[in-house]
Design a protein around this nucleic acid. Structure first.
Lengths: 210, 210
DNA sequence: CTATCTATCCATCAAACGATTGAATCGTAG
DNA sequence: CTACGATTCAATCGTTTGATGGATAGATAG
């Protein structure tokens, strides 16, 4: 049993995969309503109907993109987790912020789409909400805030959300924030890491018990 | 010289003002592309052309809404500033978070629209970006991070952005986050304040020099 | 009363949208 | 070479979108 999405990821040169890639970028930039299937098709260099042939309706494509994005992010977080395993909390945070930030700056559409789902509203709501945000629990465990994946306290989830959001914000808001602070991209990325560490590390290490 | 927007705010019962109010809500929920002028007109209970008569095109209305929102927020921040003037930093933050959070939970469209502008993209870009985010400097000064409004350092602006964003995130993402943590609204608001203080206060008070 | 201005609705437009259909193209197995 | 399934394209459909023009009612001024 392999879903269409999985099949598309197997061969990155297939039309299905190419469409998915472009769709990630465009949906990430303009959101669901701001994107037209024509924009995607034109960017890929194909006809709209070809897009429909491969992915069905606009909504189906969007959902595939969201699932794809979350899969990627989750995998990245697993990778980070392995890197920092066993280190003291302050260091764990330091490395996590570096790795996650670097990854997201290379794939800003990930942050864009996640924030779009959080804050936006689709006029016709499909509920794929439940599928997504499970890895909050993973992060909580990785940060030493929760023992197991089940029964994560509300207070803990809120903290994890705050952490993840503040990272996504700076990635996704680059086009808006960078002109504000008037720095080039490299400097901006450095500033983001610095700021995140300034904000986040003291909170979690002040009463360190680990 | 009084702009249409100012005129509308004078008389809250005027059609112009009623449209603006509804437009704030709807644009805040669905974003620019997700909102249709028909949705707004229907909610107000008027014809579309009446909306056009008062506010011109969709884009004009949207820009008015954005300016209106930012005016409100700025005024609120001035209010907060007066309340906390002279107190020690930790206390200033504590009270600021309480007041700002309460205000935004009463007017979530403010957070929604601000985040939409940060992370979204309009297919046809108007540049009203420069008008908006000046008060970052005000907040910086209010937090004791900058002397005067001019020449605020990039590092400082980034910190202010991080603070403001983490607040907006929890307001605007309530529909997504609250079901995740499974609490009622009252409890959620309390959790937001608690979490924000947990994250933000240690960072700014650790090496307190003031 | 009449003229003028304001405010509203109704009907309608051109453009853009998501979606579908049917034909054309391509590679491949027999 | 032929036949067939998979893929792509051109053309088009019905709907929704933002926007406009004209008619109507009400208030106000001369």
């Amino acid at each position: 049993m392999s879903t269409p999405l999985e099949k598309a990821r197997k061969d990155p040169e297939s039309m299905k995969a190419r469409i998915l890639d472009v769709a990630r970028r465009i949906f990430g930039e303009y959101g669901f309503h701001g994107t037209t299937t024509r924009m995607i098709a034109q960017e890929v260099g194909i006809d709209i109907s070809t897009l429909h042939y491969h992915w069905g309706g606009k909504k189906d494509l969007y959902e595939s993109v969201v699932i794809d994005i979350n899969k990627d992010l989750r995998q990245k977080l697993v990778e980070v987790e392995q890197e920092i395993h066993g280190l003291p909390l302050g260091e764990r945070l330091d490395i996590s912020i570096d790795m996650t930030t670097d990854y997201l700056f290379e794939h800003p559409e990930v942050s864009n789409l996640i924030l779009f789902r959080y804050f936006g509203k689709t006029r016709s709501d499909g509920n794929l909400d439940a599928i997504i945000p499970e890895f909050t629990a993973d992060i909580a465990r990785s940060m030493g805030l929760a023992r197991d994946k089940k029964n994560v306290q509300p207070e803990t989830m809120m903290k994890v959300l705050a952490v993840m959001n503040s990272i996504h914000n700076f990635i996704s808001g680059e086009n808006f924030f960078r002109p504000m602070v008037k720095v080039d991209r490299e400097r901006y990325i450095a500033l983001v890491k610095e700021t995140l560490k300034f904000i986040l590390i003291p909170a979690f290490t002040q009463n360190e018990a680990i």
